[in-house]
Design a protein around this nucleic acid. Sequence first.
RNA 1: GUGGGCGUCGCCUAGCGGUUAAGGCGCCAGGUUGUGGCCCUGGAGAUCGAGGGUUCGAAUCCCUCCGUCCACCCCA
Length: 455
Amino acid sequence: MRTTVAPPGRRRGVLRLAAAFLYARPEVTLLMAHEYKAPRGTQDVTPGEQSYWDLVWEAASRLCAVFGYGRIETPIFEQAVLFTRGVGEVTDIVQKEMYVFQDRGGQELALRPEGTAPVCRAYLEHGMQNLQQPVRLWYWTPIFRYDRPQAGRYREHHQFGAEANGDGDATIDAEVIELLWRLCEELGLSRLTLNLNSIGDPQCRPAYLKALRDYYGDKLHHLCADCRARFDRNPLRLLDCKQPGCQPVIAGAPPIAEYLCTDCAAHFADVRSYLETAAIPYVLNPRLVRGLDYYTRTVFEVQPLQDGAQSSIGGGGRYDGLIEQLGGRPTPGIGFGSGIERIIINLKRQGVPVAEAQRPRVYIAVQAPAARVPAYRLASELRRAGVPATTGSSERSLKAQMRQAGALGATYAAIIGDREVAEGTVTLKHLENGSQTSVPVSDVVSRLCDDDTTG
RNA sequence: GUGGGCGUCGCCUAGCGGUUAAGGCGCCAGGUUGUGGCCCUGGAGAUCGAGGGUUCGAAUCCCUCCGUCCACCCCA
């Protein structure tokens, strides 16, 4: 005998039909719980996380003030050509990671994929060449890259960065590096390495690249597929391949230090000596190269000692050709970008303490309907006096409100009920030692302002 | 873009062909009449990521997609 239950396929069909019917009614659609999710690779920074962000923001802004850098904010999107021309057409950032779109007027725009080019654009646009040089600027901004997300790598992340334009002297290199390093110090991060290298300039780099290609030319069959691609596209990158099989070849490669022209070599020696003067513990890393086309001479990067993958928490370098590339007069520049999320990951890993969440000083519990207005008036007066005050809801029992007061970490609970309304008082309970007293309403504000230490 | 692991209440986890899908945290409500944190009791909360398939029967097996994590690539 056949069962009356429809086979699964058909049952689902019926359900689908019902669903289609429901969805056809807009008022129902709105009620259906829908899966709204933050886009892939993005995240919400909830109140519980803010202490970390505040910590980094405060250290960064304080240091920038000390170093004499002024904050600049540039638009979150720019003409796409700014980046294709500035960062380099063949870089990964431009080729496969930019969020590019057309606005309704047909302009090609890009969500900012890095911080340096916009700052240089603003430098030119505002005629900052006419200010005292160098012009020292810093920024804190979201950065967008269409990448495959993983730990510490997001499609939207935030960077704190600094740029000094208009002065090619090695002291500026040292200053900018010192700023980044001091940020790490101030935040209490330890076990970090500051890698340093010089990749030369248009005078000497071509000769080095030729030497590198000559050396690699007959060894391509020993290399990984990535390296064979790098050989054509970006030979400097051959040097920092992590494949074990490529290491012997890298070890025998000509070191760039021997190919630096006298100017670059002298500049690099100066940078190093300034860093030593400031006791900044750098490590020379002849394999350190950077992925953006605009870098010249000094390049640097701060890394945690641990794991290798996308661990860099900040890096940068000199870009003496960039401003000219963007249409300005030849103008030297140097800067860095640091990833806030990655800094925070390391703060957490290293257990760096952060401020605990903001807690109300007083929680005002409403015991009876007659107390609603007096309770709200008291809350308003307290806030006006700068005392963090949170009110309970008269819809909940006193017990529930007291529980909430404790959960929020309030120092005091101010209880107002029929008795207090009649007497013109509030019952003030100190939640840590449990003591409570009756206080005239008119005294509560001064009592909670002055009395900072005891109950 | 390439390769791999994983997806069960808000969070952490059990279950791995037939269970009313279990527990902890958190949340809510009680433990007598106006009071928190500990304890006790109860409750709400999960179409087991989504869609398809195999099967009498699927959270459990297969496929696709999505998400997430790891490595590569790249970078902060």
